[in-house]
Design a protein around this nucleic acid. Structure first.
Lengths: 247, 247
DNA sequence: CGCAGTATTGAAATTTCTCAAGCCGAGTGG
DNA sequence: CCACTCGGCTTGAGAAATTTCAATACTGCG
């Protein structure tokens, strides 16, 4: 028997999809009804499980129900570059509906539950319901805006602000998904993985973390991020949430 | 009277749009006919002209007819981080159809000609012709894939391969747009701007360039890139074109 | 209890940046 | 036509940031 459920799984699929889509485009009743026709399969993942790999040609897309997934490039050295992290309600590989070959991989950072939705169902839905298509299109556009910000973060900010900016983003996205409890959210990354996200060495991550801690801006340990001084953190990070295009 | 045209301008709009869209999704005759109803305004830009700025809420999108545009973030220091460069056929800010506020700016790197297309026309077109919507959606997804690659390039590759990778990408995209002539393409960036793209100092760019030159891989000067050894360059850069999702 | 993976620390090695000066080529005005 | 200027390119060298190496804790789990 699989692990005990860490959160309600089944039946969430439609609700998550509908909520997420509604947040991005005005949907009417028929749009929502159309989303209800989607049929998916849920699946439990263990830490490190790869759900799709660079080079694959999947015929389903993944919806995160709980836990955290990551997208990453695999370098010839075998090293990873993490690109983004995904929480409940995200569709980390929805681009695969239109881009046949995966240019990156997707894995679970921790236990996670996902639903897989066949591409053809999604494409049919998008074809019949332009509003729904626009909603998910917008989702992928916000995704791209986040990637742009990551370019700037990795290329133009020095290490401490860079790390701070990353935390701001994760925290705000978690809050948006109602996954923040008392100023803290799940963030199951090791310092090494943080380094593979931000282009920093493990040692540098460690030292940057200490600075953030000792400035009393946040705590980060055992897979959770706890914000102590949001204002201060944003200021240090030069964080402006516009690019997340919330609301 | 404006500058003499450096390439055919008018009338290209529909052709460029149709070609670009067809490259991304199978269009039938009615789809193409619908694209023909698009009405646009053409505009000549001088080097440095900003066409939209971070924070703007534009109601038109831009199609590049000739020359080169760039997208960039402006940092609080006033410094720029370039995000991507765009050539004939590209729609650098099509995301603005669905994301109201610009999270970055767009400027001309050189003389450029563009057409502006009202958002509402595009949205109407997408609503009536799902295939066309899918084509342009896919375009934005390739864009995102390019951003992902830039994250990896800036964060995980050392300076010489990083610069090499950037050149590979620009060259291949130019070739795709039929803008390569005898192994060379336009690339009107100064070394400083190259640095603001790749997160390198001007001096580092200069030294990395010298290495690429002396290894006989390429020439780069006065706004043009000339490839001498494509194989060698790709190898050095660890360049794999999959992410451009050509064809 | 002990292993394995992760975190922490110090110090040397390396990369990269900054500063500063000289060069070169295109455009300008005398 | 030439001196002048300006921006971009090139070069050297010291300063700073960052990585690597290596050794030592710490922690959760079997």
């Amino acid at each position: 028997m699989p692990d005990a459920p860490r959160y309600a799984v089944r039946a969430n699929v439609i609700e998550l999809l509908t909520n997420r889509a509604s947040a991005h485009f005005n949907l009417d009743a028929s749009d929502k009804a159309a989303i209800q026709t989607i049929r998916s399969r849920t699946k439990a993942l263990a830490e490190g499980d790869e759900i799709v790999r660079q080079g694959d040609k999947p015929d389903v897309a993944v919806l995160v129900l709980g836990g955290m997934l990551a997208r990453y490039h695999t370098l010839p050295s075998g090293d990873r570059q993490y690109l983004s992290f995904h929480i409940a309600g995200d569709l980390p590989d929805i681009q695969s509906v239109f881009l046949r070959v995966m240019d990156h991989s997707v894995c679970a950072m921790d236990h996670a539950d996902v639903a897989t939705v066949p591409h053809d169902q999604l494409q049919r839905l998008f074809r019949q319901r332009p509003n729904v298509a626009f909603a998910f299109w917008r989702l992928t556009l916000v995704d791209a805006a986040i990637f742009r910000q990551a370019i700037t973060n990795n290329a133009a900010r020095s290490q401490v602000p860079r790390l701070a900016h990353f935390f701001c983003e994760q925290y705000l996205r978690a809050r948006e998904a109602k996954l923040v409890q008392r100023s803290s959210c799940m963030l199951p990354l090791s310092q090494r993985q943080l380094g593979q996200t931000l282009g920093m060495s493990l040692v540098s991550v460690n030292r940057a973390l200490q600075q953030l801690r000792s400035a009393n801006l946040l705590e980060f340990r055992s897979g959770a991020l706890d914000i102590r001084d949001w204002r201060g953190l944003c200021e240090l990070a030069d964080f402006d949430a516009t690019y997340l295009h919330v609301a």
